[in-house]
Nucleic acid binder design. Structure first.
Length: 572
DNA sequence: GCCGTTTTCGGCCCGACTGTTTTCAGTCG
């Protein structure tokens, strides 16, 4: 069983225990443990195998360590099974419906025997809910609406989609005279790969006007909640947007609060409490008196003797401890990027010519760009066979004569075949500056076979970078089952690298795997996989994901000048 | 159920909004 599955079971248990009315701190303890497990880079099973002590992990004590090792060893989670014996597991689905928390779910279950969204819909249709205490007409109407909409997708949206929706709304807000400062906080600001809703923080001396402006945004489909300082709307796209208006003096505290993550905030508030202080969205307080010098996020951190912590790090994954020890990473920025190592042209499935790509890369201030068209196994992408690739290499030679100020690198995105061989013979591979290698077929191999396939490919001395290492497409296709840790170990031993693919629907390596790569000393390439000149702009998403993985410029291949890079790409 | 420079017990983040209530519980972030 893998970390995400174990975490999932702990989350389910917490949910069910909460419905049963268990001690809320015990419930929280299970949730904290779930979060710790899903944030681990290394498989917990492997940690146990090498004799690691799980109680060293935050939020995991003797009891939970025992439970986890039993789950790993037996595949069974006894406590969860016991609870699911008492309560139907499907109750967990009800908790995803807004307005239904543990208390009301318990009431539905005990009074009406409702255990699932479908049963809930039936009971509403039969008019049974109105008899229950705490279920008024408006709540029932809201639930009905959600149940109707539930069939429609209300998943988290990809960061790029949230960006176009959010920046438009933000620009609209900033046009109002009453809005002094405004920013999109939340997971958007932390650059998570997906965003559940837009959390917007506004500083204003006239909150009512700022609020009115928000509600008046033309793309608002529905006002879900509205108070004097806080409102929630549903945009026509289906994405939810929350607005919070504060006085300018509270802007830093509000931004900190609404950027989260929740876990980061809780950790900060715990620190505040230990110093006899209180931190909330309005500022830092001793007793009821606001402390001066808490107007910005940086000032608030410094009140706790911490340096500024970048939003991408605020996940309570050790950043507070690192800040305290003055060991925060100096995160890579878009400005550090000196080139793009994965770009397609019209020769395979891209849109533009090599010359156009080179000019666009140069315009972005890059020192180099690699041409990486698909190879012939990927026929759907018009992949290049050795003869066509050789012609392309000749074209690059000619362009190198005429195009100055940027190095055009010879490469290809080479298919890793089903048996782990590469899709080009060695005598062609040796003509390339380096090789980007990737899986585009047989996604559903079992974990050991898929891993062995990639390891075999890496044995080829011309293999340089593993592109989109898990093959996931966010909201469309799951990652293939592969042991990234083992691949990283092999990459370290053989001098290979892994890619952080900047396409908004890919973004793999994920943040957690990127951090694991860094910890294991494997450098990464942040590459756009662009299929047009415009696609080069996806770099910012890749950089965001890298930053979430604690990656610094020194960890990134394409932050190096070409002479350095050349040395790193050469395998002995 | 976890945790500890207020340490082995007694804490555990905190405030806004809704709806149903008639002073507040439940939910949410």
């Amino acid at each position: 069983m893998h970390n995400s599955e174990i975490a999932e079971e702990f989350y389910r248990l917490a949910e069910l225990l909460e419905i049963e009315g268990a001690n809320s701190f015990r419930v929280r303890a299970y949730r904290n443990a779930a979060r710790t497990i899903e944030n681990l880079g290394e498989d917990v099973a492997r940690m146990l195998a090498r004799g690691a002590d799980l109680t060293d992990l935050p939020g995991i004590g003797k009891d939970l360590a025992g439970k986890i090792s039993k789950i790993v060893n037996t595949g069974h989670f006894e406590l969860l099974e016991e609870v699911e014996h008492r309560l139907p597991a499907s109750l967990v689905e009800l908790s995803t419906i807004p307005g239904l928390g543990p208390k009301r779910i318990k009431c539905l279950h005990e009074e009406l025997g409702i255990n699932s969204p479908a049963q809930l819909a039936e009971a509403i249709a039969a008019g049974k809910l109105e008899e229950l205490p705490g279920f008024g007409g408006r709540l029932i109407a809201k639930i009905t609406q959600t149940l109707d909409r539930h069939k429609k997708d209300q998943r988290r949206v990809r960061l790029a989609a949230a960006e176009s929706l959010g920046e438009d709304l933000l620009a609209f807000l900033k046009h109002a005279g009453a809005v002094r400062q405004a920013e999109i906080a939340g997971s958007y600001r932390r650059r998570r790969d997906t965003v559940g809703d837009l959390d917007i923080v506004v500083a204003s001396d006239w909150p009512a006007e700022a609020m009115a402006r928000f509600i008046a945004y033309p793309k608002v489909a529905e006002v879900v909640a509205e108070g004097p300082t806080r409102a929630t709307v549903l945009l026509r796209s289906g994405l939810q947007a929350d607005l919070r208006v504060v006085e300018p003096a509270s802007y830093g505290a509000a931004l900190l609060y609404f950027t989260g993550s929740k876990a980061h905030n809780i950790a900060l508030r715990g620190m505040a409490a230990k110093r006899g202080l209180k931190l909330n969205e309005y500022g830092v307080f001793r007793k009821r008196r606001p402390l001066p010098g808490a107007a910005t996020e940086a000032e608030i951190y410094s009140l706790f003797d911490l340096p500024y912590i970048e939003p991408e790090l605020r996940e309570d994954r050790g950043e507070i401890e690192a800040a305290r020890a003055r060991r925060l990473p100096k995160l890579v920025t878009l400005d550090d990027i000196r080139g793009d190592l994965h770009v397609h042209t019209e020769a395979s499935d891209g849109r533009d010519t090599i010359a156009e790509i080179a000019a666009a890369a140069k315009a972005r201030g890059y020192a180099y760009v690699a041409i990486t068209d698909h190879t012939h196994h990927l026929t759907v992408a018009n992949g290049l066979d050795p003869a066509r690739l050789k012609r392309q290499l000749g074209e690059i030679d000619r362009l190198r004569e005429s195009v100055h100020g940027i190095h055009i690198l010879k490469s290809a995105e080479i298919d890793i075949l089903d048996d782990g061989r590469l899709d080009l013979p060695d005598d062609v591979l040796k003509e390339l500056d380096f090789a980007v290698c990737a899986i585009h077929s047989q996604f559903d191999l079992p974990r050991d076979k898929q891993t062995a396939r990639i390891l075999r490919a890496m044995e080829n001395p011309y293999f340089t970078i593993l592109a989109h290492p898990t093959g996931r497409l966010i909201n469309a296709r799951d990652a293939y089952d592969v042991d990234i840790e083992q691949i990283l170990r092999a990459a370290k031993a053989r001098g290979c690298y892994l890619e952080i693919n900047a396409q908004p629907e890919r973004l793999d390596l994920t943040d957690i795997h990127a951090r694991l790569a860094k910890e294991m000393g494997v450098k990464v390439a942040i590459s756009t996989d662009a299929h047009s000149t415009a696609g080069l702009d996806y770099m910012r998403y890749g950089v965001g994901q890298a930053r979430r993985g604690w990656i610094e410029a020194k960890d990134v291949l394409n932050c190096r000048p070409w002479t350095d890079l050349k040395r790193l790409l050469a395998r002995s």
